[in-house]
């Protein structure tokens, strides 16, 4: 019997080892590395204390990057959670038939399962000033004066990337909310109808309060997702024009793999860690309450 109990540990050890060695250890090592100057092609390591952090806090591009992450988060919450909620209520309401509802739901969901590089390149073509869909559309509807080089114009570049992500993920958040709406007991709506409530009142007084916790969860995951941003920027603008679309992810990559300042890159990674970890704690709490 004792031997068998001992045996039980074999079930958990491989998983623990993977997580400890390749998730926890690198992150701890990253903290340590951020205090050293090092390059990838030579083995020397010099202790520099907080120099990387001081340099980072004095670098205007660092603030551009953080600002862009927050901007991205703001828009994403507005569109994905806000618009996603409205769409979810419309699709689940009595406005359209069930079949069409499912069809719409699935269609809106599709962009979220396409890989980010594919979507980013698709939109890279859409924003192309000469052959792109967007400028072509503006020509068609007679708004030539709005035409611009969307990804190369510092005024429009970051918003162009942001809008692509809304296209990609609004459907995903909407589906999360739909699942949550479907769990609301039907009786709630029935009694509301007896009281003479219209569709709009039902949404305001029943649907939204009932999915409050799911709204919180989706807001948080959207927020965290905004700080993991990398591929979209990397592919569409590379941080340009004039570094106006840098985000923390590309800022870190640039330091570590372009300038070969691995230690400085690690310091940026610490900041990304701190922000996402702090928000994740919130997420964990909200999981417990749902």
């Amino acid at each position: 019997m004792n031997k068998k109990k001992y045996f039980n540990y074999f079930y958990v050890i491989p998983a623990i080892l993977f997580v400890l060695i390749f998730v926890y250890f690198p992150i701890i090592m990253n903290f340590y590395n951020s205090f050293f100057r090092m390059t990838s092609y030579s083995d020397t390591k010099t202790f520099v204390g907080f120099a990387h952090y001081i340099k980072m806090f004095n670098d205007p591009i660092f603030y551009t990057a953080i600002k862009n992450n927050f901007l991205y988060a703001g828009f994403s919450i507005l569109f994905q959670v806000g618009l996603g909620m409205i769409l979810a209520i419309l699709l689940e309401g009595r406005f359209i038939g069930k079949r069409i509802g499912t069809f719409f739901r699935n269609s809106l969901f599709i962009p979220s399962i396409i890989s980010i590089p594919a979507v980013a390149l698709l939109w890279y073509f859409i924003y192309n000033p000469q052959i792109g869909l967007l400028n072509g559309m503006l020509d068609l509807v007679g708004l030539e004066q709005l035409k611009t080089a969307w990804l190369a114009n510092p005024k429009t570049a970051i918003y162009s990337v942001i809008m692509m992500s809304q296209w990609q993920y609004t459907g995903y958040i909407m589906v999360l909310l739909i699942v949550s709406i479907q769990k609301i007991p039907k009786e709630l709506y029935e009694s509301a109808v007896i009281d003479g409530a219209n569709e709009f009142q039902k949404a305001i007084y029943i649907t939204i309060p009932s999915i409050k916790s799911m709204l919180a969860v989706t807001t948080i995951i959207t927020f965290i997702g905004s700080f993991k941003l990398f591929s979209e920027i990397f592919i569409m603008t590379g941080g340009g024009p004039y570094n106006t679309t840098q985000v923390l992810g590309t800022y870190m990559y640039r330091a570590a793999f372009k300038f070969d300042e691995m230690g400085f890159g690690s310091a940026v990674a610490v900041i990304i860690f701190a922000i996402t970890f702090a928000i994740s704690i919130f997420q964990l709490k909200s999981f417990k309450t749902t």
Binding site: N8, V19, V23, P26, I224, F273, S280, Q283
Partner: peptide
Amino acid sequence: DIKFKNLILYLIIGGLLLSPHSALISLYKI
């Protein structure tokens, strides 16, 4: 029947809170 069940569970699920970006450079070294 395993000892420290909760500890192990939290340890593993805690990995969800850690962003892959933060491990990128160290993983490269490893």
